[in-house]
Amino acid sequence: MDQRQSPFVSEQDEDTLLNRYLIFSLASEEYALEIRHVTEIVGLQPITFLPEMPGYIKGIINLRGSIVPIMDLRLRFGKESREYDERTCIVICRMEDINIGLIVDRVSEVCTIPAEDVAPTPAVKKDSHRFVKGVCKTDGKVKLILDSHKIVAEDDVPAVKSTVAGGEGR
């Protein structure tokens, strides 16, 4: 797994990755994830359910012999889940030394967003933009720039606790 390199990485020149983003959508929003995190994009495949996981971890898949955990990004962001369809994709990422697959509604493109076009998110209230580190507007559409660190960060414990508690109730 470690040997796997992002196919988007041109080895000679890391600079080309700078400001390059993968754009995908969840519900009506578009999100941007730095391309350097992305290893590959695969179609939906059977996911093995795992017990004791927070709800947004759907399980693990077998990706050519590597075991990769799968996170439903809708659930991670607290949105409603929906039926997966033929446009549903798994974006395989490597962030903070963790390999993880993110389920997104659909992947649209790879584009360059110059740093000066990124505006910080306004501080509305505590924790309001947990996963978003900036916004930008290109082609008349707002894109939310994701903070990879927050996505894979150790979650608040309650999420796990609740599943366990549910288990005892059965």
């Binding site: 017990p51 004791e52 996981m53 077998n62 963790i98 390999n99």
Partner: peptide
């Protein structure tokens, strides 16, 4: 993956394996 073994999760699982049909 260490991600799914975070905290006390999956303490009962020592590892995993791929079965003949590709399932885990």
């Amino acid at each position: 993956p260490s991600y799914v073994k975070r905290g006390d999760r999956l303490a009962h699982a020592a590892g995993c394996t791929l079965l003949g049909d590709g399932s885990i």
